[in-house]
Design a binder for these strands. Structure first.
Lengths: 139, 139
DNA sequence: ATCCTACATTGGACAATGTCTAAGTCAAGA
DNA sequence: TCTTGACTTAGACATTGTCCAATGTAGGAT
């Protein structure tokens, strides 16, 4: 994670306590917090951090390509630090849990040319939905 | 479209002017309006229709499987009446235009069993992003 | 080590989207 | 035509996100 901070400093990021804390909160596997959750966790370490700063910092991390913005439902966006390994998402329709998953083949190739309507297609996101093991037993 | 209204009445829907107008607004190909857009268009025909009714009606149409809810960005959800033909979406990253597209093969099969983590996967949505012909010329 | 200044942070107002409720209205069966 | 439970309405409220002016500070310059 200090790699990340170094990388960002190399790109002209001013290294503040707030940004450091946000980056630390986003450290880990299968992390998909909402902005509010990031703010809550960041506040535990740095109580005076403001919502605006969390939103700003998350937006910057997304712009820099270090974090991916995920909106699986119409609710709050979630932030996924696993930006350097191509992956897709598997979401529990009941409890909302999100897992990172890896696909066979390139989903881009599933879209035939005549179905591209002249678009220059550059990106594809795939979201699987189902019931997670936990929810299917405790029905 | 009157098919739709008949079908819904068969399912116990009370047929009101408001519901009729909402259903009419959603008639057509490549229709992907937000709730507010539906409300605006419905108001042209039935000026006193309320936002709440539009939200209620759209929610009911989604529950009944007659309309699909699409959230491609983190903004307002869009409502797609093309619910009876399996399809995915192609979105212009610049102007937001949405096209319905049809894929080669079943995207469900691209998710290997070990990547399902015990989920009962039942649904998959694929969203392609790129620049539409209109936006790529008028850059 | 200290100073500068451009960049970062803050709190709070504001905006966009969606949900809920209590009171009034009406579709459709009896 | 009457009745009734489902539907609609207006507006308050909730959630999520953006913007701004005032204040603070990281890090280069001296």
């Amino acid at each position: 994670m200090s790699d990340l901070l170094e990388r960002l400093r190399g790109r002209g990021w001013r290294l503040t306590a707030q940004r450091r804390v946000v980056a630390e909160v986003l450290n880990g596997d299968h992390v998909h917090y909402t902005a509010d959750e990031v703010h809550a966790k960041a506040s535990e370490r740095l109580p005076e951090i403001s919502r605006a700063t969390v939103y700003n910092t998350l937006g910057e991390l997304v712009s820099l390509g270090e974090v991916i913005e995920v909106s699986t439902d119409g609710r709050a966006k979630r932030y996924d630090p696993n930006a350097h390994h191509d992956h897709q998402h598997l979401v529990c329709a009941r409890c909302g849990t999100i897992r990172d998953v890896h696909l066979h083949g390139d989903p881009l190739s599933a879209l035939p040319m005549p179905e591209r309507y002249g678009f220059e297609v550059s990106e594809v996101t795939v979201t699987y939905r189902g019931i997670c093991p936990n929810c299917s037993t405790t029905s």
